[in-house]
Amino acid sequence: MEPVWNGVLTCDYERTRPQASHLEWDLYTEALIRWPLILMDDPMPYGQLRRAGIVDIPEPTHRDLTSAWHRQLARLDYAVNLITRATHDRDVAGAVLDRVDDARRRGDVGDLTRALAAATAAFTRVNATHIVNWLLPEDHWERLLADLFGSRDAALICLSALQLPAAPGHILATQMQLPRQSEAATALDVEMAARQQEQAAPAAGLIAQRTRAARRREAWTTAALLAAAGNDQVVTEIRAMALLLGWAADSEERRKELRERFLTAAHAWCDLTGTDPSRIAAADLQGADADARR
């Protein structure tokens, strides 16, 4: 996100993703403009498209939408709901991409086109979560924790400890082959799963490191809750924050996996239909499937 200029914020994927295709820029800009709808049922668009890859967001729109979202993120029920719906969106995208893969294997261009239209819509919902990279209330959380612990350094350590994906990141996962765990998995769950694998996996060091990280997350979550104890509103906010930080880290890992699958599928469709992949836009894949955009 660029600095505010003349009352407008600019999100410029043309700069941050200079090697990306027109299609990738479309996927980001459309997901960005629709994140309020996808993540909190607010139909107000987050800015306007200037051109492929660039979105301009009036500062009042940014302020109103992010402050509304941040208020919701302090509620435990919303945090749980957000994680549930985002997980559902990922599952849907994964299932639709399975259909895409099946149509590819069969060489059925008609089915592939239809499945890809649905996958474009489904992946756009998943891609909306990329805003966690810069729109979470991290400054507020840092101040909250600094007040609770009486130390900014402790707040930073705590935030860092809580930003642990519930499941190993995709690079670590390829080494560890650990079973998928929920956001609520305790350090003991992680450790037990790790021990089951420890003998067989070649990456015992990685497993040990991840176990330590999970223990650290648990210890700092407990410390933050103890620090907040007695103030129900703050306890709730800390519980929500702990869930959201773990989810955000996890969400980015899973989103990247789905993005790779989607782009691979789109390129396969281009191969089958003789289309230049550097010239297609998201609208070309969505076709007339208007329902897929809902």
Binding site: F149, A154, R216, A223, L226, G230
Partner: peptide, 28 residues
Amino acid sequence: GRIAWPTDAGPLPSRLVALEDRETIHER
């Protein structure tokens, strides 16, 4: 907050502590 404490466990604790790797990171 509230605690559940064994009836025969003696006096209640004077403070509550959160540890990370055997070091105190917060106490009340």
